[in-house]
């Protein structure tokens, strides 16, 4: 009797172990799907594109295949890199300027009510101007060099940084301020111990939007008037009916944007702790 009992138990144990292992395998499969779903979707789209071009009988001049674009990127690596370097410089210049000015503006808005009243309507009004429409004017004043591109990237990136930083600072639980005050904290300590860390996820949200917009700003600047940069390279390719090089430039531009975005994402992971990251 006792022996059958123990035997039953060991069988049950084994079964449980098995089902747990199954569950584990299922979970890891789900995790795999989750992690690589974006890549798989992108690969599927590229594959369909690759197959559809010859099937539809479109000329490579009108729509090159992804493979052709990829080979072109590899063969024209140096040309693309030279122009990408220029665009990167403009993007980072505009974005960096927007970070410095935007965070400073946000802090002033946060700490000064009169300033908030004065500047907020202006900022919103500025936001309603299509920045693209400013590009020709900027060229008029700043010439054909990097200055109008950086300015455009800066103008387009400023708004999300200011707004997200102000919102991040304002959304702090007031009781947290009471808490650190009761410990004798000064305003500077309150800022660095509580306000800033609590606002960081918001601030980085703004940064990520801003960096993508900066890329757009810089490239649009290059469309209007430029002698270098990926946008300029596209115009060149267009005038030569070199559709493949055109697409290669687009791919490089988006690679630039994606890389910068994930770089920020990485930095955020190092410095900001999200509320539910531990779960």
């Amino acid at each position: 009797m006792a022996r059958t009992d123990t035997a039953d138990i060991s069988v049950a144990k084994q079964q449980r172990k098995k089902s747990m292992a199954n569950a584990k395998r299922k979970r890891s499969r789900e995790q795999f799907a989750e992690r690589y779903s974006a890549l798989m979707l992108a690969a599927a789209i590229l594959a369909i594109w690759q197959v559809m071009v010859p099937i539809s009988g479109l000329s490579e001049f009108i729509l090159p295949t992804p493979w052709a674009i990829a080979t072109r990127i590899v063969s024209e690596y140096q040309l693309l890199a030279t122009h990408a370097y220029i665009t990167l410089f403009e993007v980072l210049g505009g974005f960096g300027l927007a970070v410095v000015v935007g965070v400073t503006l946000a802090l002033t808005i946060f700490y000064s009510k009169p300033f908030e009243r004065a500047i907020y309507p202006l900022l919103v009004a500025m936001q309603t101007i299509p920045k693209v429409a400013l590009a020709p004017i900027l060229v008029l004043y700043l010439g054909y060099g990097w200055a109008p591109k950086i300015t455009l990237a800066f103008l387009i990136a400023l708004f999300p940084i200011v707004i997200s930083t102000v919102v991040g600072l304002q959304s702090l639980d007031r009781n947290l301020v009471s808490l650190v005050r009761s410990m004798g904290a000064s305003e500077i300590q309150t800022f660095f111990k509580v306000r800033l860390p609590a606002a960081l996820p918001n601030i980085f949200g703004g940064f990520k939007v801003a960096i993508s917009l900066s890329v757009i700003g810089a490239v649009i600047g290059e469309y209007v008037a430029a002698e270098r940069g990926l946008g300029y390279l596209q115009l060149q390719a267009n005038s030569l009916f070199d559709t493949t090089l055109n697409f290669a430039s687009v791919a490089t531009i988006s690679a630039l944007g994606v890389t910068l975005y994930f770089l920020l994402d990485y930095v955020e992971g190092r410095v900001a702790y999200k509320r539910d990251a531990a779960k």
Binding site: N175, V180, K193, A198, Y273
Partner: peptide, 28 residues
């Protein structure tokens, strides 16, 4: 000489338990 406990725990979610407890020491 005064310590305060509020209705909400008001722990800073980006700090570990020990770093939360040591916050007053850091501030002082």
């Amino acid at each position: 000489k005064i310590g305060v406990v509020f209705q909400q725990d008001l722990l800073l979610y980006w700090r570990t338990v020990i770093d939360n407890i040591l916050l007053p020491i850091e501030i002082k």
